[in-house]
Design a binder for these strands. Structure first.
Length: 470
RNA sequence: GGGGCCGUAGGGUAGCCUGGUUAUCCUCCCGGCUUUGGGAGCCGGUGACCCGAGUUCAAAUCUCGGCGGCCCCA
């Protein structure tokens, strides 16, 4: 039994373990073990991310260790991270002459190499990415997949371009990539430009994707940074223009971590456990034979025939020695989208019983009608249902506010407050919650205006989000 | 950043205040019988006092430190 999803913290904590996503008992704070089932979800989710990126990025791998002098080069950047860097100080018993940092992110590892790689305008643009672990000494509450000391699945892309405009185009392109990725996972998001005081250390500006967790707090699930030529100046990354001059490159970087999987779990799951979109479910179909004494043979024969027919999918035939009800609960907990039940009645009529994870009804189909096409049709229909459900759930937690009082009440009641404000007054909102920044585009499920009268000074304002955050 | 609570089998717990027998109960796990259309039942079995130091004839229980976890507030 799982705690109800209304008690979100407890539900999440238990589900992560019961569904065998992670083992949280590893004896170091903020570090967790990926179990086979969870790791399979990770692999399926990240394959999609790779597929999208591989269209015009190249995957690379940079070292985990960064020498102190390299890490410390960009002063604004390091100020943002210095209190949470892990240091390697010894090699065996010998103290190291130059301390080595466990990367908190890889800008300072990658950009010195960019300096070596980039000589002329013909070398640009460069678009690379890597999926690696990064380390941050978090002092706040750690939580599996959400706040970690070792982020195990940090996808970071880094690009270099000739001009600021080209970098800005890349920011837009990265936003499109993230939209495609989260649409694939059926996770609703809002896109904000973070306020000046909350941008990535060293960036010109930061665009962030936020989603809403069931308890009404926002979760940042992706960021895109325009670095302009800030790092290029620090790391002296220049190229020769067609005219023979030398100019600094303009860069971007953008990241997604395993928080995407946290949001997948949190947005779709219910009181019974995980609900996984068909495409990322480690088990897409489960077949449960119902074995009455003396009638096992035909039932097993039909079950195995169905199993063979569905082998183009990730399918499990559960012949274990448990009662059918126990198996239903088990596979529902693990989010299996489609379940077949086959008992003596079905065997006699050459039928199967079908049930979808997101609905509770059961129905029968003739065995001969079951085909790959039918499964895919069901998967597609389920995707639409999950989409409406996810949007309804998120929509109910977003409130447009016309006064500061409204903002206070909404954030206090664990809602995301949207409010018009001008640049001068934006910071005043900080006393009510985290200021997510200026909304960049209106999702089709939300009915608000991106521009309006500033709630504080009644001047010309833009739409800003305020919420409690993870 | 500030405050509070807690650590007993794989998981959840009782015992701790008031130190003293073989450490309670549920679940999981293993073996057997039996059963199977929404978490079956019976019998038998394995398995624990976070680590270190101190106080004491005696520590799960008291004290200190470490490590780990949870909650609230900024």
């Amino acid at each position: 039994m799982l705690p109800p999803k209304d008690s979100f913290s407890e539900w999440y904590h238990e589900l992560i373990q019961q569904a065998e996503i992670m083992d949280i008992r590893y004896p170091v704070k903020g570090l967790y073990v990926w179990l086979p089932f969870g790791f399979k979800i990770r692999q399926l989710v990240y394959s999609k991310l790779r597929e999208i990126l591989d269209r015009d990025h190249q995957e690379v791998y940079f070292p985990t260790l960064i020498p102190e002098d390299m890490l410390m080069k960009e002063s604004e950047h390091i100020k943002g991270f210095e209190d949470e860097v892990y240091w390697v100080t010894h090699g065996g018993l010998e103290p190291l002459e130059v301390k080595l940092a466990l990367r908190p992110t890889s800008e300072t590892a990658i950009y010195p190499m960019f300096k070596l790689w980039i000589r002329s305008h013909a070398d640009l643009p460069i678009k690379i990415y890597q999926i690696v672990n990064v380390f941050r000494y978090e002092t706040k509450h750690t939580r599996p997949l959400i706040r970690l000391r070792e982020v195990t699945s940090f996808k970071e892309a880094h690009t270099a371009h000739r001009t600021y405009e080209e970098a800005e185009e890349q920011v837009k392109s990265a936003i499109e990539i993230y939209k495609e990725f989260y649409d694939f996972l059926i996770i609703p998001y809002l896109i904000f430009k973070r306020p000046e005081w909350d941008k990535f250390p060293g960036a010109d500006y930061t665009i962030a994707f936020d989603t809403l967790m069931p308890d009404g707090r926002t979760l940042q699930i992706g960021t895109v940074h325009n670095l302009a030529d800030n790092f290029a100046k620090t790391f002296d990354i220049k190229y020769e223009t067609p005219e023979g001059d030398h100019a600094y490159v303009h860069q971007t970087c953008y990241g997604i971590s395993e928080r995407c999987i946290a949001s997948l779990i949190a947005i779709h799951g219910d009181d019974l456990g995980l609900i996984l979109p068909f495409e990322v479910a480690p088990v897409q179909i489960v077949i449960i034979p119902i074995l009455y004494k003396g009638k096992e043979e035909g039932v097993l024969e039909l079950s195995r025939r169905l199993y063979e027919r569905l082998k183009n999918f990730r399918v499990v035939l559960d012949e274990s020695d448990e009662r059918p009800g126990a198996k239903y609960y088990k596979w529902e907990l693990k989010g299996v989208p489609i379940r077949f039940e086959i008992g003596p009645k079905e065997y006699e009529n050459d039928e199967v019983v079908v049930s979808f994870r997101d609905e509770r009804r059961k129905f029968r189909v003739k065995f001969d009608e079951v085909s790959d096409d039918l499964i895919l049709k069901w998967a597609k229909e389920m995707r639409e249902r999950l989409r409406s459900r996810a949007i309804e759930s998120v929509k109910g937690k977003v409130v447009f506010c016309e006064s500061l009082d409204d903002v206070a009440k909404s954030v206090e009641g664990r809602r995301l407050a949207l409010v018009h404000v001008c640049e001068k007054c934006e910071r005043e909102l900080e006393s009510y919650g985290s200021v997510l920044g200026q909304m960049q585009e209106k999702p089709d499920w939300l009915n608000v205006e991106l521009e309006g009268e500033c709630v504080v000074c009644r001047g010309k304002g833009y739409l800003v989000g305020v919420a409690k955050t993870y």
